[in-house]
């Protein structure tokens, strides 16, 4: 009896070691994946950026004349992203405020469920909506030049797309603010509105900002919804109603058809986009850190006051 038990055990401890190795391998895989992605992108793109430096940072993208300038598309990307984030974050933040403080309590739970659900809608459906509803509307009623496809349409579509993210992150941020902040303001004679806008929002601002950064990342990286409504002419943006092309759209449109230098130029676009997202990710990390520090300090303070 003792023999069998021991043999089971030597087997188990061998299995323990094997499993630990498997777990460690899995963890290293994600590192490996990132390294592979980075190597493929940079090895493919960086040499091109250096060898075509003068034209690559230029404004003309014309495959036929072998000019691969990304500047107008980079500007268009930032333009569209900024516009959609301004619209989406403003509307989203006010929506979250309304849901958290001013809306009838019974409506809040179903609405926030609905909004969470909407966060899962495929972006291509937003693109379809933009193409069939927003583009014709802008063409017929808003645009001075009779073109619907363009910066404004794309920004509206992206703004709607990032709304659910902004709303739910802002709601979470406000819920995390200690209740006594708000009540304290009311006790000092502030109205409900004043307490909300002067105390609640500033206390939740790091969380709200983090949500905005997250939304920026989504808008910047979105491809399909943008392709379907932005018109895709690689031009320098100078009007809201102009057809332009973003970096993401450029990659998606070109990659399947181009060869040689043109394809390499697309990889270089990927590098630029990758760097953009890294910057945003870094901002996010920094904001998250500050937010945590502040919250920690707040918690400590409230504990101290409790002890007294």
């Amino acid at each position: 009896m003792t023999m069998t038990k021991r043999s089971i055990y030597s087997f188990i401890s061998a299995r323990d070691k094997v499993m630990k190795a498997i777990f460690a391998f899995a963890a290293l895989f994600s590192v490996l994946a990132l390294i592979t992605i980075t190597v493929f992108l940079f090895a493919g793109g960086l040499p091109f950026i250096f060898s075509h430096g003068d034209t690559f940072w230029g404004v003309v993208w014309d495959v036929h004349s072998e000019l691969y300038g990304i500047m107008s598309m980079a500007v268009a990307t930032l333009f569209v992203t900024a516009l959609s984030v301004i619209m989406g974050v403003t509307v989203g933040l006010f929506t979250a405020i309304c849901l958290y403080k001013f809306c009838p309590k019974k409506a809040v739970a179903p609405i926030s469920h609905l909004i969470n659900l909407l966060a899962g809608i495929p972006s291509v459906i937003y693109g379809l909506f933009g193409m069939v509803v927003i583009v014709p509307f802008i063409r017929d009623y808003v645009s001075p030049n009779g073109v619907g496809y363009g910066i404004l349409s794309a920004s509206i579509v992206l703004a709607v797309m990032i709304l659910p993210t902004v709303v739910s992150v802002s709601l979470d941020a406000m819920r995390a603010v200690p209740k006594n902040y708000f009540e304290g303001a009311l006790a000092l004679g502030a109205t409900k509105e004043q307490a909300t806008f002067k105390v609640l929002i500033p206390s939740a601002k790091s969380g709200i900002f983090a949500g905005a950064v997250l939304a920026t990342g989504r808008a910047l990286g979105e491809t399909m919804a943008v392709i379907m409504v932005i018109g895709n002419s690689p031009e320098m943006p100078n009007s809201l109603f102009q057809s332009v092309r973003t970096l993401t759209a450029n990659i998606a449109l070109g990659a399947t058809e181009m060869t040689g230098d043109a394809a390499t130029a697309l990889i270089a676009c990927g590098v630029v986009l990758f760097v953009f997202t890294l910057i945003i990710n870094l901002t996010f990390a920094l904001v998250g850190k500050n937010g945590k520090d502040k919250k920690g300090a707040v918690r400590e303070k409230s504990n101290k006051s409790k002890n007294k």
């Binding site: 992605i37 493929f40 992108l41 990390a285």
Partner: peptide, 25 residues
């Protein structure tokens, strides 16, 4: 920390860059 940083970075990469990567590989 290294693995977490990697995972966070992977999470932030736009899908089109994944597409480009898949295409290249």
């Amino acid at each position: 920390r290294l693995i977490r940083l990697t995972v966070e970075t992977l999470a932030a990469i736009p899908s089109i860059v994944y597409g480009l990567f898949g295409y290249l590989v």
